[in-house]
């Protein structure tokens, strides 16, 4: 038994099966990210005014690093170009060029993820501090002579944890204050724990902005990772099909490329919505 139209296009639709399937899958993905973008809008519109320290904003999106985000956007767009070049190389029967462009694509994907991890690290080690006298600051924390690190739950501090660990005072290097001349003071303040009313890193539980930022970008990151792994499979272990069934192999690259463009497109919406607007 053979399923028709696995590699050749059906005459009346002009499409082979996998292409139809992939477009449908992308439609579903659009609904998934569409729902998350809608949630972003609804949460932002409904956010409470003036809860963020210093700038009195409801939505502290200014904390994201725009130059790095822009650079990452460029990295993804480059990978989108190279994946098309890879497919075009196959169409021109040039397997070597195909492999070169695919390797660039995959490297771009991992560069994107590396840069994203750097951004995550920045947020996980950045703290919001409120004192009982109403003063509020953002900056970096030092507890027992150590700076908290990335992705280690034992390094994440908040007020209940400080109290239960019998820490009496912490050091805090505050960020330059916006709108106050921007003078950077890199001297550490010593803060007594019983003066603190709130302390938490820039992590999901601290503010709904971080919650939605991390959720959407992490889900997008998973898509990047998944896409990169599949493309890597096509480039190395799965490339044998080029010899046995070049037509279907080219189709696979086309379909994989379509998914890759989608992942890229999500970021192109994500970047302005989360970083700029």
């Amino acid at each position: 038994m053979e399923i028709p139209y696995t590699d050749k296009a059906r005459p009346d639709t002009g499409l082979y099966n996998a292409k139809v399937g992939l477009w449908l899958f992308l439609a579903s993905e659009i609904m998934l990210f569409g729902a998350l973008f809608s949630s972003y809008i609804m949460l932002r519109v409904g956010a409470d005014e003036g809860v963020w320290p210093a700038v009195k904003l409801a939505w502290p999106h200014h904390l994201l690093n725009v130059p790095i985000g822009t650079f990452n956007t460029a990295v993804l767009i480059t990978s989108s170009v190279t994946v098309v070049m890879a497919w075009a190389s196959l169409k021109m029967n040039n397997f070597k060029r195909f492999r070169m462009f695919m390797v660039i694509t995959i490297l771009c994907a991992f560069a994107f993820l590396g840069i994203k991890s750097y951004e995550y690290n920045e947020k996980f080690t950045h703290y919001e501090l409120r004192l009982k006298d109403g003063k509020a600051l953002t900056g970096h924390l030092e507890v027992n002579g150590k700076h908290p690190g990335f992705w280690s739950p034992s390094d994440l501090w908040n007020l209940p944890r400080l109290t239960s660990s019998n820490v009496t005072e912490v050091k805090f290097v505050a960020d330059p204050m916006e709108g106050h001349g921007g003078h950077a003071s890199h001297e550490a303040l010593t803060v007594k724990v019983d003066e603190i009313s709130h302390l938490d890193a820039f992590i999901p539980r601290n503010h709904t902005f971080f919650a939605i930022y991390f959720t959407i970008t992490a889900l997008h990151g998973l898509h990047v990772l998944g896409g990169a792994l599949v493309l890597a499979y096509f480039t190395f272990p799965g490339a044998g099909m080029w010899k046995t069934n070049p037509e279907q192999f080219t189709n696979r690259i086309e379909v994989g490329g379509l998914f890759w463009h989608f992942v890229d497109l999500v970021w192109i919406f994500l970047f302005p919505v989360v970083y700029l607007l």
Partner: peptide, 19 residues
């Protein structure tokens, strides 16, 4: 998919204490 999005968000609420 929108329910999947909602499920992911509620999972964050339940496990990572987002709001």
């Amino acid at each position: 998919p929108p329910l999947e999005a909602a499920g992911i968000l509620q999972l964050m609420d339940n496990v990572f204490h987002t709001s």
